[in-house]
Nucleic acid binder design. Structure first.
Lengths: 181, 181
DNA sequence: CAGTGAGCGGAACAAATGTACCAAGAGGCG
DNA sequence: CGCCTCTTGGTACATTTGTTCCGCTCACTG
């Protein structure tokens, strides 16, 4: 609901209707609207971390070069984005809300750490020499590119934008490693 | 106001109070709240494009290598972010709102185009061989890194995160050019 | 100088929203 | 079976919000 119609749309009545429950259920199960939002955000954040972890854990054991990694990551994230753009919109809303609510900020911090850890793992797998530093760059680029796609959708995002960009980035990061070696 | 307390906080009364005007002024000057938001978003988007254009136009004529570019861009954007984080929060809200309101989506599209144009210009200046393709990557990375800083602020963002990341990216993008040549 | 219209100030109203309250049902347990 | 607690269903109420309305001020204009 947050992703589809914005955080304003999350009213007790709207939530109840979506859940097929009476309005009172929303105040029966949650102390307040604030708490309801908090639980929803926490749940969603954890699901998102799990989702991303799954992607990298699936990729980690394979022997892939930079281009393959780019293709795999692009495919996984692009289809995720296409299948459910609202969720990604909602996540960015979550991040922004985190700038205002301390408890959410912490959760967003954990979420970002998970992303960084995962990027680092991937970078190590393709042989980056500075996986920790590069992870920030990779996560930033992925986040930014996906946000760009949300904002201004391109018809063939995965093929024309996302994969090429990631391939170039990954290739550069590992080529440097090769050059140094 | 959007950046500080979220889009929900933009009520006629709150706007009037911030402007030091009576409530009726908000409906006198704007047909509806929707129109008020629209005008505010359009104005802000144009200001933002102008701001970014100014940065690159200032940098373009200079003879800078990748590291200098990274330092200059990092300094400009990081101080902008630190001076007024709310504005950047508001801009991301704007992007998200753009996924729901067509008129805003167009404006966000123009905004992104401006960014891409500017990145391309900068990349050309440092000698990238694929400035158009790389621009997406650079804009994505910058957007993502700045969003990350909003979400989870690091104490020495410019020095410890932003500049190093940009320097690495710019260096890689141009080193490749050198290698090819 | 009278008039006139743009803008100010605040009150008022209907709709939406957060929340409280109460009555009925359901399902286990003595 | 009768009771009791958890849950449901719906209504009610105060507050907030979008919007309207009307009287007032004041600068300009013919």
């Amino acid at each position: 609901m947050i992703g589809e119609r914005g955080p304003d749309a999350v009213t007790h009545r709207a939530v109840a209707q979506r859940a097929g429950l009476p309005v009172s259920a929303t105040t029966y199960w949650f102390e307040s609207k604030e708490q309801l939002l908090q639980e929803a955000f926490l749940l969603a954040a954890r699901e998102e971390v799990a989702r991303v972890e799954a992607v990298v854990l699936e990729l980690a054991p394979r022997e892939l070069d930079a281009a393959d990694w780019a293709a795999a990551v692009a495919a996984a994230l692009a289809s995720d984005l296409e299948d459910n753009p609202s969720r990604h919109v909602a996540f960015t809303e979550l991040v922004l809300e985190g700038t205002r609510r301390p408890w959410l900020r912490d959760e967003v911090g954990r979420w970002e750490s998970a992303w960084l850890r995962l990027a680092e793992m991937g970078l190590r797998a393709v042989g980056s020499t500075k996986p920790v530093d590069d992870a920030r760059l990779v996560v930033g680029a992925i986040t930014g590119l996906m946000l760009g796609q949300l904002a201004n959708p391109q018809p063939h995002f995965e093929d024309d934008v996302f994969r090429p960009a990631l391939e170039r980035l990954f290739t550069l990061l590992t080529e440097r490693a090769i050059l140094r070696a």
